[in-house]
Design a protein around this nucleic acid. Sequence first.
DNA 1: TAGATTGTTAATCGATTAACAATC
DNA 2: TAGATTGTTAATCGATTAACAATC
Lengths: 208, 208
Amino acid sequence: MKVSERQLERFPIYLKYLLSMRDSGLLTISSPMIANALSFSEEQVRKDLQVVSMNNGKPKTGRDINEVIHDIQCFLGYDKYTNACIVGVGHLGSALINYQGFRDFGLNIVCGFDSSNKVVGSKINDVEVFSIYQLANKIEELHIEVAILVTPSNVAQDVTNKLVNAGIKGIWNFVPIHLNVNNDVVVENINMASSFAVLQHKLKTKGE
Amino acid sequence: MKVSERQLERFPIYLKYLLSMRDSGLLTISSPMIANALSFSEEQVRKDLQVVSMNNGKPKTGRDINEVIHDIQCFLGYDKYTNACIVGVGHLGSALINYQGFRDFGLNIVCGFDSSNKVVGSKINDVEVFSIYQLANKIEELHIEVAILVTPSNVAQDVTNKLVNAGIKGIWNFVPIHLNVNNDVVVENINMASSFAVLQHKLKTKGE
DNA sequence: TAGATTGTTAATCGATTAACAATC
DNA sequence: TAGATTGTTAATCGATTAACAATC
């Protein structure tokens, strides 16, 4: 079954909500209940859950909460680990190394890379930081599939080229520029400037 | 003229690219050139630029690059500052306090809030960290409009309620849960789990 | 049973893309 | 002039919402 990016973005939100509901003792969950809690439409919730789940819900009761949780986790691939590296160990890069939430979705940060002697050779939360010159070797040696890119803007494309040449499969890009890569490398962007632009505009046009 | 969220998200990307092109000496810019560099369609670029700019482009040459830069910056409100606070001064919160890029889009971080005695009273990059109990007072005193929410998930809704009661206008939410607020408060989410879900799925279905 | 919730099919809405005449 | 780029108007595409019969 086809799934859109928008749907994919919603699944972790469903999951987080369902986990908290299970914690508070709930055994079944209905689409209207989820929709109401998360400000979605109930039709949307129903369609979304149909994407990840083979089983049907039951009229009047809804779905087994453990089943839905399991289905979403499997669909998102949370059951198996993906090895990743942090490229650019500045303030944000360090924070991401320390961020424990990644474990929940199967993201395993195995090392960092940086060009500065200040951090190369150091360990952050047991994660070793290597020189950028070791990029190609370590990516192969440690079976790294995903690079989390947190470099300064002006070197981001250069470093990206190095990553692609080293055989990286996906780049999670926190740098606010567009990266050019060839088609077989996947790029997904977290652009804080884009997000803030939306917030700012909503604030400015509020009450119009 | 109406503008969609998707368009808003693209403007900072255009801007970043245009600034780098200006730095390298370019005086005019055409839609096909932008489209090609950023992997958008040229029709889309043209439509987007029409949203922010009163002036027309010129056939065969395009648009004055300084004019476009100025128009986007004005449209996004980068010319005036927005006062913001960081709520939750953990690893990620501290990194955001240190992040210099916010200045570029007019975001002025005036203080932090936390509940832990380890950080309350300290200064990070000249930004003072106050106790969560001072939230209401300081938001009024320092004219804070936007809260950048970076707390643990389990307290995020509680803290949000406090922020709303204190009269905050907008919440930039980095916590991976859905926040319930009343209609006159604006919430914009940065959800790393959602973003990673998209990356993971693209990796999994690559080459299908 | 009655009614809440289900899944499916059709209608609506909005954004992107295509087509094309105008123009520097 | 010729041709690249422009802005506009129409067509397409995809996602969300509405409608409704089925069912526990």
